[in-house]
């Protein structure tokens, strides 16, 4: 069976792509953010995952309100990136892992998840930036991916409880995949931020810190909140922390538990409180 080796999480912000393209990693504004990553680079160089299951939220690139999924699982051999409307630098296509995609799809359907399957799927910065952040020295990250989109665009969102169950079921699917591959799960999103309305610029440091701690030792903590309660605490886009919840839930049935490899929290990048986290599954 495949081995589920750990989990990664990071905030994503389109501006990060610009900073990387311009080589601003040591710039005073950007350094405190990029400083969160080197210990995780070392860990990744050691554990070398082959396949990444990426929980992310589409930002209006691949999905529109005519067919808005709750959960969408990529099943393509390759995922193209595209201009998202801002003239930001695009990335080369990312290799998919259709074998694992379809294995996860079968598993989720059998467990009564009503997923959308995507044999063609444009992935946005939420999917491509983490690969650049975690593998900064590779033009193309040395992994295949299975992207799983979770709706954060239109309310009601899937409940935190439902997202947790999704993650847990994806974790079980990975561990029942007949393969020698080493698999990690990745969450892209959060932490607290709000782009729109008179409340734009909202950040909630204490909530983010408690949430990040829960990711290590109390993974179900955030499932107590409704989507509206998450907006109240984390902001309208802070609800992207649902991705972290899915990632963490995927690890709950693997190994003997998790150990924190590294975490880092920094305010602000653009309008966002940023977090990064790596968790290793204990054998």
């Amino acid at each position: 069976m495949a081995r589920l080796i750990g989990g990664l999480a990071t905030s994503h912000i389109p501006a990060i792509g610009g900073a990387i393209a311009k080589g601003l990693q040591s710039d005073p504004y950007w350094k405190p953010f990029f400083d969160g990553f080197p210990p995780i680079h070392d860990w990744l160089a050691r554990v070398k995952p082959d396949v990444l299951v990426v929980f992310y939220n589409d930002h209006g690139l691949n999905f529109f309100l005519d067919k808005m999924p709750t959960f969408a699982v990529g099943a393509a051999a390759e995922y193209a990136n595209a201009d998202e409307g801002w003239g930001i630098p695009t990335s080369p296509p990312v290799a998919g892992c259709p074998d694992l995609s379809w294995h996860i799809i079968r598993h989720l359907m059998a467990q009564e998840f009503d997923i959308v399957t995507c044999q063609e799927m444009l992935v946005d910065h939420a999917c491509t930036l983490p690969l650049k952040l975690f593998w900064p020295n590779d033009a193309v990250a040395p992994v295949q991916i299975v992207p799983i989109d979770i709706n954060t665009v239109q309310f009601p969102l899937p409940t935190a409880k439902r997202v947790y169950k999704l993650g847990k079921t994806v974790g079980a699917a990975i561990q029942s995949w007949r393969s020698e591959q080493r698999v990690a799960v990745l969450a892209s999103g959060g932490l607290s931020h709000q782009l729109e309305g008179e409340r734009a610029g909202f950040i909630n440091k204490a909530f983010d810190q408690q949430f990040m701690e829960s990711m290590v030792s109390n993974p179900e903590w955030a499932t107590q909140f409704s989507d509206t309660e998450l907006v109240d605490r984390a902001g309208t886009q802070g609800v992207e922390l649902l991705m972290w919840l899915a990632m963490r839930a995927a690890l709950t049935t693997a190994g003997a538990g998790v150990r924190k490899v590294h975490s880092h929290y920094h305010i602000p990048i653009s309008n966002t409180a940023t977090g990064v986290l790596a968790l290793e599954v204990l054998a």
Partner: peptide, 11 residues
């Protein structure tokens, strides 16, 4: 939403 300065994008 009863959250000040915030309108949820609902149905």
């Amino acid at each position: 939403s009863a959250i000040p300065g915030t309108a949820l994008f609902d149905g």
